[in-house]
Simulated assay, not measured.
Amino acid sequence: MLIVAKFYLNRFFKQGVLLGALALTAACATTDNTPDGFDDPYEVTNRKVHNFNRGLDRVLIKPASNAYGVAVPDPVKQGVSNFASNASLPQKFVNNLMQGDIEGAGTNFFRFAANTVFGFAGLLDPASDMGVYQEDTNFGETLAVWGVQEGAYLELPFFGPSTQRDATGKLVDLFTNPLSHQLGDPERYFPPTANVAARFGDRYRYTSTIDSILYDSADSYAQTRLVYLQNSRFELGAPTDDTTDPYEDPYDSLYE
Rank of each mutant, 00 (worst) to 15 (best):
A84H: 03
K48R: 12
L174F: 10
T45S: 09
S217C: 11
P178G: 03
D57H: 15
D202G: 05
F158R: 07
M130K: 10
N231C: 04
V44A: 12
G151K: 09
R225D: 14
A29T: 01
N10S: 14
L18N: 12
L236H: 12
T209C: 01
F52T: 06
F175H: 03
Y189W: 10
L9R: 15
D36K: 07
N33K: 08
F200A: 10
K48W: 08
G160N: 09
D211F: 04
M130T: 05
R205A: 10
L97C: 08
T142R: 11
F159M: 15
A87P: 02
T45Q: 07
A198W: 05
L156W: 12
T25L: 02
A29N: 06
V4S: 08
P186L: 03
V117C: 07
E248L: 09
P191T: 04
A127G: 04
V172M: 08
P250W: 00
R203E: 09
T163W: 02
N231W: 11
A67W: 09
D74Y: 00
V44T: 12
L24D: 07
A121F: 15
T34N: 05
T34P: 05
M130H: 06
D202T: 13
A222C: 08
A105I: 04
G131W: 07
K77H: 05
Y255E: 05
T207I: 05
A71M: 14
D219M: 12
L9Y: 13
L179M: 07
N115E: 01
A71F: 11
A114Q: 03
